[in-house]
């Protein structure tokens, strides 16, 4: 037995906010539990059969009481609802602009994480303290859930669809990473560690390509920080050329396909007249199932890449397309 934990670490700005709400709710719970239990016990003793306590004036119903004890829980509920909804909208809403973007791929039974500069990690995540981190997550098979108790964040990782969550770690340290959605035999081993580092140490770690891992102990849960020679964008560019995407998608809108330059985040008009925002989910769908949403003015002629690209390579392509900025420049954007 290694120590006894009774309180979780609090290592993100969100965790501090959630804890405040959590303890408020705990106070409410304790108060009402003691109130009801106290009344039940008090009545049980005072009005036990045969006791001499006066029963005069016992009522069968009382509208004022009924309204009162409907309104109290309703009011407490509404306060908590508004408080919690605000925090929820923040955590699952868009992250700050300076967020560090990390891609997460879940599969039975490991976490695969990709940093923008190409460093890849399995079941380990190194991030700097004090900077917002945005996770873009997808599963290769069943539903998983990315859960870091110390940050109080959790988000399901779905097959076929990107989910995002962001948080700002505050306290350097080593924290549990769990899969929280039951995913099969080794569900309870789909775990890892999140290392929050001082920004300076993190820079060192980045520079060493993920080799220098201060404070990291081999935890035996399959920790291998792989280093890729290329950044995500570079890998994506290679793939883009290899698949000859540029044959149809040039620097400007062409005959066969629209340009990808400056596409990300823009609104796109489709053939059926609807307008969609070109986010990660749109790009992914258009690569894997191009005919689902055809851009206005183009024929549905693009072949599907479903089955040809795994989630990792799809993410690389998306990273590259995101990096293509207008006005036309020489493709490469160094991270």
């Amino acid at each position: 037995m290694k120590g006894v934990a009774l309180l979780p670490d609090t290592a993100s700005t969100f965790a501090q906010q959630v804890d405040l709400l959590f303890w408020f709710l705990t106070a409410v719970t304790v108060f009402f539990t003691l109130l009801i239990a106290g009344l039940v016990l008090y009545f049980a003793v005072r009005y036990r059969r045969g006791s001499t306590a006066s029963r005069a004036g016992a009522k069968e119903t009382d509208l004022r009481l009924e309204i009162g004890w409907s309104m109290i829980p309703l009011t407490v509920g509404l306060i908590v609802f508004v408080w919690a909804a605000k925090l929820y909208a923040d955590a699952y809403g868009p992250p700050p602009d300076n967020a560090l973007e990390i891609f997460v791929i879940g599969k039975q039974w490991m976490w695969h994480l990709q940093h923008p500069n190409g460093i890849r990690e399995n079941n380990e995540l190194h991030i700097p303290a004090g900077r917002p981190v945005k996770l873009t997550m997808i599963s290769q098979d069943v539903i998983h859930s990315f859960f870091v108790p110390a940050f109080r964040i959790k988000r399901d990782v779905l097959p076929g669809r990107y989910n995002t969550v962001w948080f700002t770690p505050t306290k350097p340290g080593k924290y549990h990473l769990f899969c929280a959605e039951y995913c099969g035999t080794q569900h309870s081993r789909m775990i890892g560690w999140v290392y929050v580092m001082e920004p300076a140490e993190y820079e060192k770690w980045l520079a060493s390509g993920g080799e220098a891992r201060p404070g990291a102990v081999a935890s035996g849960s399959g920790t291998m920080a792989g280093i890729s020679t290329a950044s995500l964008v570079q890998a994506g560019e290679q793939l883009y050329k290899q698949l000859r995407c540029n044959a149809c998608h040039g620097a400007t809108d062409g005959q066969r396909g629209p340009s990808h330059y400056g596409l990300f985040g823009k609104k796109v008009k489709l053939r059926d007249g609807t307008v969609v925002v070109a986010d990660e989910a749109y790009l992914r769908e258009s690569i894997l199932r191009p005919l689902a949403k055809v851009v206005d003015g183009y024929e549905p002629i693009m072949p599907s890449y479903e089955g040809l690209l795994n989630e990792e390579r799809t993410l690389q392509l998306i990273a590259y397309i995101k990096s293509l900025k207008k006005p036309v420049q020489t493709a490469e954007v160094k991270p």
């Binding site: 906010q17 959630v18 709400l21 959590f22 709710l25 409410v28 719970t29 009402f32 539990t33 009801i36 239990a37 407490v76 509920g77 908590v80 609802f81 408080w83 919690a84 909804a85 605000k86 925090l87 929820y88 955590a91 859930s145 859960f147 108790p149 109080r152 964040i153 959790k154 988000r155 929280a180 959605e181 039951y182």
Partner: peptide
């Protein structure tokens, strides 16, 4: 009462993120 009130932790969006599953 305890069961019902702890349900509020899960109905409340922000705490549910942490406590779900």
């Amino acid at each position: 009462v305890i069961g019902g009130l702890t349900g509020l932790f899960l109905a409340s969006l922000a705490t549910d993120i942490h406590l779900q599953d």
